[in-house]
Design a protein around this nucleic acid. Sequence first.
DNA 1: TAGTTTCGGGG
DNA 2: GTGTACGAAACTA
Length: 797
Amino acid sequence: MEDEWLWGWDATPGIVSVWAEPDGRAYVWRRIPKTGELVREDVRFRPWLLLASLEDLAHLGSRLRPESEGASRYQVTWQELEGPGALRYLVRGDDGRALASAVLEGASRRLGRPVGHMKELGANASLMLPPEEQYLVTSGRTYFRDLAFDELRRMQFDLETTGLDPAHHRVFLVALRSPDGETETLEAQGDDDSAEADLLYHLVERVRAWDPDVIENHNLHGFDLPFLARRAKHLGVSLALGRGGAPGLRHRPSARGAALGRPVPGAPPDAMRRARYTVPGRELIDTLDAVLRHDFSTRDLPGHGLKAVARHLGLAGPEREHIPGARVYEVFRTDPARVRRYAKDDVTEAAGLARLLGGAAFALARMAPRRYERLADAGAATGVLDPLLVRAYLRQGAALPAHEEGDGTSHSGAALHLFASGVARRIVKADVASLYPSLMRQYRIGPKRDRLGVLLALVDRLVDQRLAAKGRARAAAAGSPERFTNEALSAAMKLVVNSAYGYLGAVGLTRFSDVHAANEVTRQGRAVLGLLCRELARRGVTLLEADTDGVYFSVPEGWEEVDERRVVSEVAALLPPRVRLEFDGRYAAMLSHEPKNYALQPYAGPLVLRGVAFRSSRAEPFGEAFLRRALSCLLAGDVQGIRDVYVSTVMALRRRQVPTPEVCAQVRLTKTRAQYLAIRSRRRELPYEAMLANGQQDWPMGEQVRVYRATGSRAGLLPMPEADDAAASWPRDYDVEYYVRLLRETFAARLVRALAPGDFRTVFDDPGQPSLFTPSLADAKPILTVLTAPEEPEPSA
DNA sequence: TAGTTTCGGGG
DNA sequence: GTGTACGAAACTA
């Protein structure tokens, strides 16, 4: 039974896409395992919805009857689900639209006013899923059973356009990668409408010829599809990208969707980010979603752009062609071969990324009763757990609770302690793996209204089956489909398990949310963190920072790694059985600056910087470089070294030896010239001042530029870097004293906790103003300031 | 410091 | 149009 809750119950293998219509027709595309042959099954299902009351259907009279009397054509049937939930009538009919209309008709009569949409009846009166999900929930089918990721036919395409705005710019080239891995480009033969229309037509032809199950690209839903849709509409080209000659792209609402409502008149059109598209028979997968999901747990990506991620993950080849986005079209006109290489590299990387990070969504689609493309961009709580719970309740014939407003109880959070700030040596990090789900299992904390205990049952099963999947992955050969599948399963299961706590706390968003249960989880979490901090402290270590489920501490001089591991396992033994404290790493030194802001010096390897104080995307490169060098000295205990780095940086600025690009901040222009001029009297902004001062009449929205403060309160402007402009020399007319001040006040300030006040003044004394008496730094040492002792336990609830 | 707005990402 | 539902960082009061 519990396996059915997690995996469904229908063994049909190889489903790669499902499309259903409200009238009860469903199309199921399957790949036959082994042969890879594609088949389409046309099936019928009986559309259904859940209602809190049958009152609004009473007007159907004899056309409404209990399910137990059997269904016949033109009849609406109902079945009462068992148990206390508000949504207790499962109502079915031949046609979903007619079913909804009947309810709306009844509601209109009852209320004496027209009711046009189910939502007007309130979320607690009904539940009507999209047709595909109705079909998947009642059939117990899921995608991809017995199918390996690499058996899916996946193609990628990437548009090259003359600009970002489809109202003014065109598609001039499309790079394609076939399911067999061949890349090619299609190009417009001219720069008019008919050439572009021809290009779109050929793209559609390619898709039909290759007939992929999945179409992928990076930011597919945010850029390529909306751009394509807009151009196709303008050009009158039919975008029949779906299977079976069905009509073109359709919209679907999406998670990153209508949060800010419809486009605001006068505001820049930002509809791109908010639209999602769908077509029958193929799944439209955006690798950006996989990247966001990946970074949510790892938090180690330098950005979310295709190139940055591909480089970071080792997917970019050494020959990778690169062209700044804004120059692609102009390069194409002089050197088209270069743009072709660039665009092909893009689709190759998108395919690599899709495979490397896309396994989790693929595995989720084997569990949850939703389309693969929806699971790829869904949040795990509302997007995965909610559908699993709904299916489980219906499978058991149990009534579903309605959404419930919070009772005003606020959500209490995790513990965060900064025990000491400054510099410490011999650092150990220990943390609890999956703390919150472990506590839910340990203390059986689940939603009050989940009377079947489905959520905890799912978490139990997922944790156990994840261990099994990890074991199978380890046993399988590296690079084998078996390894890939099991790693993907493990990643998907981790995702779902870790969202179980978030599910509890999402009051008003998830069907079974329970803020009291969520608070009990965090309370137990704080208790565990408090206990392990006290027990560590009792064993002679110095606590530095503890956050939610992990702690950094410093061990006494003379301790070896075995001693470090020994205290961790001693303390681990005192925790509840399911709560596993693990040794997570050791470092030579740490600068603890503020909560969640610290620098770590590993015993081998480069400095690790965490938190906004140490990582800022727009920070001036010279300051960033200074900070890295200064922190290296600091964590090595070399205070004089910090002084030397500071003096040399200040001198380099004053001698104008720092190249201008090093003092630039990289910014994106988000206001038009007119918008900026309208607010300019109230607020001056350097980037726009730079554009105006440099005679830029207007600029495209979203343009990236590098700006700096130049002498005489002017604003300096540099174009974005080119691959080949390393040798270019820019005027060194930056405002030296402004940047000296910035160095001291913004960058040096990150070290204020690390030095005694007198030493700090000496280290960052202005080298240009010799003082009468300069104290020596020879004996100066970084300091550590202990702020608080570990707290006593909270009174138990 | 808290509350609000912007941005990501794509050419 | 198959209904919702972002989160972190930057900015403003």
